[in-house]
Amino acid sequence: MGSYALRRLIGVVPTLLVIITVAFFMIRVAPGGPFDIERTLPPEIEANIKAAYDLDKPLVVQYIKYLGGVLTGDFGPSYKYKDFTVAELIGAGFPVSLKLGASAMLIALVLGVTLGTVAALRQNSALDYAVMTVAMTGIALPNFVIAPLLALVFGIYLSLLPVAGWSDGGMADMVLPVTAMALPYIAYIARLTRGSMIEVLRSNFIRTARAKGLPEHRVVTKHALRAALLPVVSFLGPATAGIITGSVVIEQIFQVPGIGRYFVQGALNRDYTLVMGVVIFYATLIMVLNLVVDLLYAVLDPRVRYK
């Protein structure tokens, strides 16, 4: 498995190269640059600015310089936040985004699996229908609808929680964004768990476990859950990507100073280096996490062997 992991890790490199190349050239062929938004500058000053950011060099030279920079973790200066490099901005935003995303993921997993298992054990009961109806709601409602509604109800009507903001990243500030982020995934994971649990509970090895007199809770937690979790584990890859993408909107709505917010601001301001830096950073993150998920799959399922 070690060599498999290594090979997958090496496989990430060409994909990243494609991402960097496509993003780089797409942005450079764009009509309009980051500096022609305000009034027109005298030509000398414009030339100076372009020289400072290497925009006067041939495209290929710029590309190689950028690629070299990325290798050393240097994504260049931000065009808009002029005193900061992109790496600094990402470094500042990532702990916040990580805190939000990881909490949302953890809650989604714990609640989703619990709800799904309970629903499966009481299949076709009122409880089962209740859980599945709520899950359907969670799946059908996008997070950018849930988020403002949560803020409206809990922030304004009930005045229980801050509507938005991130004073110190305390509990109160986190509740609404994390809830909005986690809800669709709680729903999805609950549905997945329920489906596979129902199937697993009918299988032979569960009958064997019951036949040898194991108490039901041991049958479920020790035997059934492990097999039933497999689809959930393979969903973790897309879920991570989804939570990362979703964080863009959630951070915007709740004014959380994470990477997602920088990304949107950068996109709206044509802050190209910042946008590219975030894309490359998140692409790497998603690919590495996908690799981790695949390896985790092998640990859980003895039938999967990577060579």
Binding site: V29, A30, T245, F263, A267, V279, A283
Partner: peptide, 15 residues
């Protein structure tokens, strides 16, 4: 493997 959402966003920004 590409984070496509981000590419669509770049595309909308650029063009």
């Amino acid at each position: 493997a590409l984070p496509f959402m981000f590419f669509v966003i770049i595309l909308m920004v650029v063009f």
